[in-house]
Design a binder for these strands. Structure first.
Lengths: 159, 159
DNA sequence: TATTGTTATACTCTATAACTATA
DNA sequence: TATAGTTATAGAGTATAACAATA
């Protein structure tokens, strides 16, 4: 009897998997990375629908929580480089979603704040994102879901 | 009395934060993305220590679970493009961590499997990663930690 | 003709470093 | 001299498409 390499490999696959799957868990990053990818892919259509980029949205989120005095500070707050958010700020300003006014006390700095329109867009986008997040979280048992969210918030806070 | 814009903005910051922080949670991606970044940054030194790239490590992980018959299948399994992993496979093969032999039944395909040395490297890297993951997970209350890991595995499985 | 592995090309992101204007 | 914002440049990472060998 002759079995091809193809069959042998398929067979080995099944055996190896059944042995290792039960006791061990994948690395955290190996689980989290694809999850983030999926989430971002889900968010894209929502963002496109409201004509904001991902960086644009995170700027709106940051400014909705609090106005910021300098662009550098804003960049650092959202984990970006100061040179990287300039295009984003231009777009947001042109769309009337943020205000960027020179500080009379120090004409080098730009005072940044969200507009009423920007706030509306931010809320609408978040609503769309929440709907899609729900579809994902619905896969979890209620108990784990709570632990998952609490853990995530904890890790997010003191990072 | 005159207060500068700087002072006013700092003040506004404190007020806005205290109002919004309690009731709302950030978007999932907004919490997960920085977390993944941190995890990857922590893993880098471990990988460097054992002379494997991140893609190289995930190839070793995939092949340690099961040998794979074609490079395309392997690429898809780890979420990469078939053209992207070629350099990685070359490196792993040169280092003696994987074997890549032509299938006699179909000379187009390369049969892929991990070597004993590759398995040792994979185990060593994972050990280093686990140590650093522990430092992160230690921040969580035991209950949330369990829920977090269970939820993560569930989302990872049926994604 | 279709498929596997490979190479080449173009495109997006990101990081770094100059440059200006103010202080 | 140092800092905020801006622009320009180079590098890494990724995706796409073309190519040779085999089926």
């Amino acid at each position: 009897m002759h079995i091809s390499y193809a069959q042998a490999y398929d067979c080995a696959s099944a055996i190896f998997w059944s042995v290792t799957a039960a006791d061990e868990r994948p690395d955290l990053a190996a689980m989290l990375y694809p999850l983030v990818r999926t989430l971002i892919a889900e968010e894209m259509p929502v963002l496109a629908e409201h004509d904001v980029s991902m960086w644009g949205y995170s700027v709106l989120v940051a400014l909705d929580e609090t106005p910021v005095r300098t662009q550098s500070a804003l960049a650092e707050a959202i984990g970006a480089d100061k040179s990287r958010i300039i295009g984003t700020l231009d777009e947001l300003q042109d769309a009337g979603l943020i205000e960027r006014t020179p500080d009379p006390d120090d004409r080098r700095v730009r005072l940044l704040s969200i507009t009423a329109k920007g706030r509306r867009v931010r809320r609408a986008v978040r609503k769309g994102i929440r709907v899609r997040e729900e579809r994902l979280l619905a896969k979890l048992p209620a108990a784990d879901r709570q632990g998952f969210l609490r853990a995530l918030r904890a890790l997010h806070r003191d990072k």
